[in-house]
């Protein structure tokens, strides 16, 4: 059983950071909603605020890790230009998609949207984490800030969802290939 180094990085970017962020996002939305909706959110559970602060910081790290590995590690392999006259485009996912009218939209719509909208996720969740850490229980006294926190968290979720969905679908159509081979297990015939 083996995989390529590029495949591993794609996995780290998509499953390690992206999917984990999406999972965390759904949890954060529920937690933020209940925290913000409660009149006295922390008197009954004083450790909850601390937990949510750490949780949001981890989400910020995940979101930035996802976009940075996506843009600076995986995306360069995706958009690599093949040498003139190349016939086999399997190592050049963007060119492979654009070479066929039936798959061109995966790039012109999917990747073009994903590569930009994904950045709204870390920007939004950084704002959410900052406001929550700064205000904590005092958020119960700021209705407009509560609305802002929830809306930005929701936008972060949507942006990450769009990016994750198109990332997975594009990788299915034209996966990033190449790099050194990583042997996961020696295996053997049954």
């Amino acid at each position: 059983m083996e995989m390529t180094s590029r495949g591993l990085w794609t996995l780290i970017h998509g499953m390690g950071f992206g999917a984990l962020y999406l999972l965390a996002c759904s949890g954060a939305l529920v937690e933020l909603y209940w925290f913000i909706r409660a009149r006295q959110p922390l008197e009954s559970a004083p450790s909850r605020e601390r937990f949510l602060k750490v949780y949001l910081i981890v989400m910020v790290v995940l979101a930035w890790s996802a976009v940075l590995t996506g843009a600076y590690v995986v995306y360069p392999w995706y958009r690599a230009v093949p040498p003139a006259g190349s016939v086999d485009l399997s190592m050049f996912p963007q060119r492979l998609l654009m070479a066929n009218p039936t798959t061109a939209s995966w790039h012109s719509l999917g990747m073009e949207w994903k590569e930009h909208v994904a950045w709204l996720a870390p920007i939004s969740i950084t704002m959410v984490a900052f406001v929550f850490i700064r205000y904590g229980r005092d958020l119960s006294r700021h209705r407009q800030l509560r609305i802002a926190v929830l809306c930005f968290a929701l936008v972060s979720f949507v942006a990450a969802g769009v990016a994750g969905l198109f990332g997975a679908l594009i990788d299915k159509q034209a996966p990033v290939r190449g790099g050194s081979i990583i042997q996961l297990s020696a295996g053997g015939e049954k």
């Binding site: 939004s124 704002m127 005092d138 802002a148």
Partner: peptide
């Protein structure tokens, strides 16, 4: 809404929200 004046002014949170909107 609690009727007491907030202990922390809302300016800091508003700044974070507006800056994020402008950045996006």
């Amino acid at each position: 809404e609690p009727s007491e004046s907030p202990a922390i002014p809302n300016g800091s949170g508003a700044a974070a929200a507006l800056a994020a909107g402008i950045g996006a």
